[in-house]
Nucleic acid binder design. Structure first.
Lengths: 228, 228
DNA sequence: GTCTATGCTTGACATAAGTCAAGGAAGCAG
DNA sequence: CTGCTTCCTTGACTTATGTCAAGCATAGAC
């Protein structure tokens, strides 16, 4: 594993306060690997063998039931994922696949559990990470249960705009069908939701989005730090 | 606080492995309180002041947005709740209210955080609890995104039946409107979903439910430990 | 027992969102 | 530049679910 990769992992909230010997021995057991796009990394129902850290590329967490799939989250680097299943030593509730070629570091789940029991600072940070994951899933659920398709899209776009420093124009971060699935609608409905947002000052052409009237959009999305 | 209450809390997964001095000092800071029914305990957006442990009664966790509400979870005794907001020292994402008269133990959030940083076993168990909460929210979200109203009800009833030892007849655990809100539908839709389940061997009269053909129901609900 | 409040069910209807099928745009390969 | 592939959009239509209003049960209160 390269030093800069190691350092990026060390800088993650999850590993920042870990004792150096714990970290080093964890990293000895870990290995870095490159994956092609569209590769399934994790299958829901399987046991968690590795804590994954995404170093570059993008990963989709999705859920399957009865022949359907839905996007639950999109992981951006540098982030760890599937910590909960690793710590519980339980079957994955979600599947994961690469969206692009990805570089990842895989840390054996058993070593993560051992470090976690040995190193209080790590346990504290792991709990923090889990608490954040939980809260983020609560937000997602709230959005699904309390907003309609148009409102969810409006809120999503506002958040994107904020992620771009409040810029009125930006590119969508993902393919539209991925956005649609994440937001809990079909691609067709996403298309229609975009058009219906014209009257709220949203213009969309391909991957480009322009917001001409943020206030009007805010009024619709009622953005709320308690949702997303 | 009574000894039997203390013991019930001590027996919770969250506190089971905590060092005795940590536990005792945490409980010194805590206090037991009775609440009437329909009392709002927590308002979303407010800071978390106390970790709550429900000793008797029932509590609803719900979310609000733009004048609407939806049930996110129903807490049964003996369970702690709102651990994530306490540990993160962050605003509540959900509100909570009593459904019945309740007995609760309130533990100051600052003391919980301190104990958590001091006591590794507690930190480990807290992480376990958070991981479980996360997983349970993932299941809820999967159900909402992947199943229609009838399928969600079918799965809910199967789970209830299993909770009653696989008995074909049981009472609903909550008012129907609460079940409806939890399952993400209106009371009217719940009524219709019940009727449409007749052909799958479900009979419902008031709070009583009878399952005459579990296999048919299973075929519809495709119950899956990975959902709920 | 009767009365009343509450929650539940039903019907009629409205609306949001999904489905299917066709057409179009954009990116890439040659 | 041309043609192909992939994804997106659109229109027509279906279906699921929500809304509104009325009527009906049930459980307590008296």
């Amino acid at each position: 594993m390269y030093d800069d990769e190691l350092q990026e992992i060390r800088d993650l909230q999850l590993f920042r306060n870990m004792a150096t010997p714990s970290f080093d021995s964890l990293m000895q057991a870990a290995y870095s690997q490159d994956f092609p796009a569209e590769l399934q990394l994790v299958r829901q129902g399987a046991r968690a063998n590795f804590l994954h850290v995404l170093v570059s590329g993008r990963v989709e967490l999705f859920a399957e039931w009865s022949g359907q799939q839905t996007t639950m989250a999109i992981v951006e680097p540098v982030t760890s994922f599937i910590l909960a299943a690793c710590l519980r030593d339980a079957p994955h509730l979600m599947s994961a696949r690469t969206l692009q070629p990805c570089k990842m570091v895989l840390i054996p789940a058993a070593d993560v559990r051992a470090a976690f029991r040995r190193d209080t600072d790590f346990a504290v940070d792991a709990a923090g990470e889990l608490a954040e994951s939980y809260r983020s899933m609560v937000r997602h659920t709230k959005s699904l249960k309390l907003r309609n398709a148009r409102e969810r899209l409006a809120a999503f776009l506002l958040r994107q705009s904020e992620a771009h420093g409040g810029s009125p124009g930006f590119r969508l971060p993902h393919e539209k069908r991925l956005v649609a699935s994440y937001l809990g609608m079909t691609p067709e409905s996403l298309s229609r939701a975009f058009r219906s947002l014209n009257e709220y000052g949203i213009y969309n052409k391909g991957v480009y989005v322009t917001i001409t009237d943020v206030e009007k959009l805010r009024a619709l999305a009622s953005p709320d730090s308690l949702i997303e």
